[in-house]
Computed example of a mutant assay.
Amino acid sequence: MSVALLLVCAMCLDAALGEPDWLWSRLRHPAVLIGQGIGWLEKRLNHSGQRRIKGVVVLMLLVLVACALGQFLTLFGSLIEIIVCAILLAQKSLVTHVRDVGDGLRASLPEGRAMVARIVSRDTTDMSETQVARSAIESAAENLSDGVVAPAFWFLIAGLPGLLVYKAVNTADSMIGYRTERYREFGWASARVDDLLNLIPARLTCVMIVALSGQWGRWSDILGDARKHISPNAGWPEAAMARALNVALAGPRSYDGQMRDLAWVNGDAPRNIGAYEVFRACDMLWKVWGLALALLSVWVVINLVF
Rank of each mutant, 00 (worst) to 15 (best):
R106Y: 03
R106S: 07
H47K: 15
A133F: 03
L62V: 06
I200A: 12
G290F: 00
H97D: 00
N272I: 12
A136E: 02
A168E: 09
A234S: 15
E138N: 11
V8S: 09
A136G: 03
R113G: 03
R179Y: 14
E142L: 14
W264V: 06
L197Q: 02
W22E: 01
A240S: 07
Q71G: 15
S174L: 03
Y166L: 04
S48I: 04
L223R: 15
V193Y: 02
H47L: 07
W219M: 11
A133Q: 04
F72H: 08
G267C: 08
L285S: 03
K167I: 02
A86I: 01
V169K: 02
W22R: 12
R113E: 04
M241E: 02
M284L: 11
L33W: 13
S220D: 04
S135Q: 12
A141S: 14
E142W: 12
Y178L: 12
R184P: 04
S93P: 12
N198Q: 09
A189C: 12
W219N: 00
R44G: 14
C67V: 14
A281E: 04
A250R: 06
R134I: 06
I222M: 08
I34L: 15
I302A: 09
G187A: 06
W289A: 12
V265G: 01
A294E: 01
E142N: 14
A107W: 09
A244F: 00
Q91H: 15
S139R: 11
K54P: 10
R280E: 04
L41H: 08
S48Q: 15
L33K: 15
D256G: 09
D225V: 08
M11Y: 04
Q131D: 13
L94H: 09
A15R: 15
S145W: 05
F186V: 06
L6W: 08
E129I: 13
K228I: 01
G274K: 07
I230N: 13
E138V: 13
W299E: 05
G49W: 09
L163G: 02
L249W: 01
G162C: 04
S190D: 01
V116G: 06
Q131K: 09
A191S: 14
S2A: 11
Q91E: 10
I34P: 08
N266D: 09
S145N: 09
V3S: 12
C282I: 05
G37L: 06
L204D: 02
I87H: 11
S2L: 08
Y178G: 09
V300P: 09
D14P: 03
R280F: 00
L249K: 07
M259C: 00
W299K: 06
G257P: 01
R51I: 07
L105N: 08
N46M: 05
